[in-house]
Design a protein around this nucleic acid. Structure first.
Length: 259
DNA sequence: ATGTCGGCATTGTGCCGA
């Protein structure tokens, strides 16, 4: 089973690029972040015509997540538990059953800038809720993946210029510690399980010629429960997509699971 | 180097978020 996670930075602006990519790459499952669309406005039809089931958790103008799957999506759940007052659409999960059942959690973790401040507080609180959900998934002892835009640069080797990020919400010690607490519950960073090299990025800012200078950061991650990690066959970053026409500022992260 | 995008409210262009 091939699963890709991709922050597309707006489905309306990215529809041609995303459909062209899907036609050639043909993943079984796609986890999308930053659709920046309501459920009603999301263009389901082009994806359904390609054979995908579509489940969205959208919001007008900002955020929004979705799951596309060739297999049926079962037990769909929207919203990260733990705060009924949170209206930001950043979490959707569902189960696919191939040769094995896999729980798919698609997440768009808050950016948190400027830090310190209320947005940073919201990020850290959201990460506490994510930790609680991860603990529950681990307790179920089933194959689950928690993948998406984490907006966390885990270590200095995950940035071309780490020093310029040290005061940023993506790399501050509080953000990195919160990310480590989640991983340390017993999850596997799928990319790092397969590739230990520095200089592996999933995001290059539109500004300042970041792509041209390969000034990137690794902030899109897939964390796996042990039962999912046992199924992991490969994990790779599709860097070339960033160099195409009208790209997102993120590129897809791919998982190959024996499932 | 207040640099680049996307979306919104709006019909010109400024604001917000990233």
């Amino acid at each position: 089973m091939e699963i890709a996670t991709f922050n597309i930075n707006g489905i309306k602006a990215r529809l041609p690029a995303v459909t062209a990519w899907l036609q050639e790459a043909r993943p079984d499952v796609v986890l999308l972040q930053e659709i920046k669309s309501t459920d009603e406005a999301f263009p389901r039809q082009p994806f359904e015509e390609m054979g995908y089931n579509v489940e969205t958790h959208g919001q007008k103008g900002f955020n929004g997540v979705a799951i596309l799957s060739k297999l049926p999506l079962e037990d769909v759940s929207r919203g990260l538990p733990g705060d009924d007052a949170d209206e930001q659409a950043r979490w959707i999960e569902a189960t696919v059953v191939g040769r094995r059942a896999v729980r798919l959690c698609c997440l768009y973790l808050p950016n948190g800038n400027p830090a310190p401040g209320p947005k940073f507080d919201y990020k850290l609180a959201w990460m506490e809720r994510l930790k609680a959900r991860a603990a529950a998934l681990l307790a179920a002892e089933e194959a689950a993946i928690l993948a998406g835009d984490y907006n966390v640069i885990p270590q200095d080797e995950d940035a071309k210029e780490p020093a310029k990020w040290h005061d940023d919400a993506l790399a501050r010690p509080e953000s990195r510690a919160a990310f480590r607490r989640i991983v340390n519950l017993g999850l596997t960073d799928a990319f790092r399980a397969r590739n230990q090299a520095p200089g592996q990025y999933t995001f290059w800012d539109y500004q300042g010629g970041a792509w041209r200078r390969d000034d990137g950061i690794r902030i899109d991650h897939a964390l796996l429960t042990p039962q999912a990690a046992d199924l992991l066959e490969d994990c790779r970053i599709e860097k070339a997509l960033r160099g195409r026409e009208k790209p997102s500022d993120h590129v897809p992260l791919w998982l190959e699971l024996d499932a």
